[in-house]
Design a binder for these strands. Sequence first.
DNA 1: CGTAAAATTGACCTCTATCAAGCTGGGTGG
DNA 2: CCACCCAGCTTGATAGAGGTCAATTTTACG
Lengths: 229, 229
Amino acid sequence: MEAVADNLFPILRETSLFSAWPEDLLHALLLQSKKVTLDSGEILFVEKAVASAFYLVLSGRIHLIAAASTGQEKIVEIIEKHDLFAEAVAFLGGRYPVTAAADGRTTVLEIPLALFLEILEQKPLLMRQMLARLSMRLHFLVKELRHLSVESAEQRLVSYLLELCPLAKGSAAIEFPTKKSAVAARLGLTPETLSRVLARMRKAGLIEMQGRSIQVPDLQALERWAAAR
Amino acid sequence: MEAVADNLFPILRETSLFSAWPEDLLHALLLQSKKVTLDSGEILFVEKAVASAFYLVLSGRIHLIAAASTGQEKIVEIIEKHDLFAEAVAFLGGRYPVTAAADGRTTVLEIPLALFLEILEQKPLLMRQMLARLSMRLHFLVKELRHLSVESAEQRLVSYLLELCPLAKGSAAIEFPTKKSAVAARLGLTPETLSRVLARMRKAGLIEMQGRSIQVPDLQALERWAAAR
DNA sequence: CGTAAAATTGACCTCTATCAAGCTGGGTGG
DNA sequence: CCACCCAGCTTGATAGAGGTCAATTTTACG
């Protein structure tokens, strides 16, 4: 853990949650926050632990993991650089619903909930933005639920690829954010199945692949292909 | 659609969202609301439609359905009598993320979003409660995600049964809230699979069943059985 | 009752997980 | 500088869970 530098301001400002915060409040919040650096695989917090803070990824990546009693794990979400996570726990008894683990060496900003809540309480506008954020997460999860329950491995992978590329038309160059085995877990698949689906796409001439980067000459063709299974 | 009667007050008061609302505001909101009655299977709103209202189930049941391009459907949630739904859409461009359909003849109270938002804007305390509600839904969905991705049919059904009965120990008499085919969809299963799992439980002496009602002589035995698969 | 919808049961098949080898490529120490 | 090593990836063979299709049986309700 280290002291918090002023260069964090622009990063926080770019998040939907903090974009409209007045300077002084942001500063007060930063004063109570600290950087935490994790080694690959290290656990930031475990499911059901009492929540006292939420986080912003400064570098690296965080995996949010839901584990079953059988020991199986599903990556609910991969949090990228400059994204906030776990901010929603604030409003509920305050226990984390998932486990957070570092993917590669990762630094996060730990923001204490107490002061954050206090500030929110007094600024309806900020609360309003918080509501919008939670709403978005809700929609995200509903979408995930659909993907998992009614879509095949092919459809899920294609949806995921389409999410990763900004334009929905023409061709695209896509890069997996992390190693394929983690992408597989994110999609609710095994690494083997992901590998096979990618192989099928390659054989069908729909993609080219080298390591983590994927070329898609025709996004719409890819979509049509997935729809047919 | 009919005029709104005053006997709705106690029902609204029992919801977590409206429990703390001042009389006058609730009244103002009710004045703009109306009852809507739907026949079985009738659609209240479709996915992606622009949202102008949210709802409270007065009688019957509503299924929230996520459909895939293939035509397959998953029931995301079964909304019971006196529960609110779709209130979260308010804060997001305002499109419904799911389709809502009546399960049996169903009456809902349609509450317009515009006034609701206006009121919230001026009452930070109410907003705070709204946040708590969204947070709960978020946790619910995360749990669902885990169930779907890392649990077997047996485990999902048992979790669902345990959710339906208030006590976690000893014996219980459980009643499915709706027809089995809908329960199956809620669990992400086909009716056939649900039927088979129930048959297996019956043969293992873990449950007795007549129509929609289920007797569980030993809840913990049921849990152990599910854990072993 | 009689009919239609719901539920069950059986046979079969598909998808994905699992287990078990190989393969590959980037980093390390000799 | 190269050989080796090992994590990550791929590929193959196999099995199991759950879906699909079809044929009954049961239930609900006019």
